[in-house]
């Protein structure tokens, strides 16, 4: 993941990146988060800019990582997580992009020992000709039986000019593995919007209510769930 030369579109992990914005902050220092055996930790990150994390979970460790990626400019979180035996990694990310912004999450979750659980929930909203990306690999090493690795990735487009790219990938070298992944890009349900309007909600309030609920799925289980929600709401208001 480290490369001193500025990446190009040919680098798989950067195929949708905002390379001009990336150049201004390149090279990106790698931050390591290491949890000792049995250690539990909950972390939240808001409006991170361009970050690159390496997460190392010793056997039985448990990390909850929640991210709100809303700008103000290019936002990119790349992480590689190495999961030891019986460890747990719960990752929730919300990306709220407006006016030409690029926001992205790039993950590589490696199940290195048996019985580890990883769960990734990514909810993205794109308006104003922005784009939101998710590139996520789940790698299950040989012998990592009993792995449970799930990816739930959904994006909501607010207009025709905006785009979402989602690429969940699985690479499995063990038997007895449970890997569920769901991936969907859509628009706000028009029937629901009319229903809300019929009860008196102006269009922006109706959209905000629905998007708030959509984004909240990324923060389930966060220690500071309410604070994240409040910050996401403020970002949504700026988008609509």
């Amino acid at each position: 993941m480290t490369a001193l030369a500025l990446p190009t579109r040919k680098d798989e992990d950067f195929r949708y990146a905002d390379l001009a914005a990336l150049e201004r902050v390149w090279p990106v220092a790698i931050e390591t988060i290491a949890l000792a055996e049995g250690e539990q930790r909950a972390l939240s990150m808001v409006n991170l800019g361009v970050r690159e994390l390496v997460i190392v979970l010793a056997p039985g460790a448990s990390l909850d990582l929640h991210v709100l990626n809303a700008g103000p400019d290019y936002g990119r979180l790349a992480l590689r997580a190495e999961l030891g035996t019986g460890s747990r990694f719960n990752f929730g990310a919300a990306q709220l992009a407006g006016s030409g912004q690029v926001l992205e999450v790039v993950t590589e979750v490696q199940h290195l020992g048996p019985d580890a659980v990883s769960q990734q929930t990514v909810r993205s909203v794109a308006g104003g000709g922005s784009s939101v990306n998710y590139l996520g690999k789940v790698h299950v090493a040989k012998g990592a039986d009993g792995t449970d690795g799930s990816q739930s990735v959904r994006a909501m487009l607010l207009d025709r000019q905006s785009a979402a790219n989602a690429k969940p990938e699985l690479e499995i070298h063990a038997d007895d593995v449970k890997c569920a992944h769901g991936c969907a890009v859509g628009e706000l349900d028009k029937q629901a919007l009319f229903y809300l309007a019929q009860r008196g909600l102006p269009p922006e309030a109706a959209k905000k209510l629905m998007l708030q609920a959509f984004v909240a799925e990324a923060f389930v289980g966060a220690a500071d769930e309410e604070a994240l929600q409040a910050q996401a709401l403020a970002a949504l208001e700026a988008l609509l």
């Binding site: 629901a192 909600l201 799925e217």
Partner: peptide, 26 residues
């Protein structure tokens, strides 16, 4: 007020929040 033949399901939005915001918007 329209009572819908097929009321719409709105996942994640609580009835109470929806109604309070609607009543106050009105």
């Amino acid at each position: 007020f329209l009572g819908f033949q097929y009321p719409v399901e709105i996942p994640g939005v609580s009835f109470v929040q929806f109604m309070r915001e609607s009543a106050n918007a009105q």
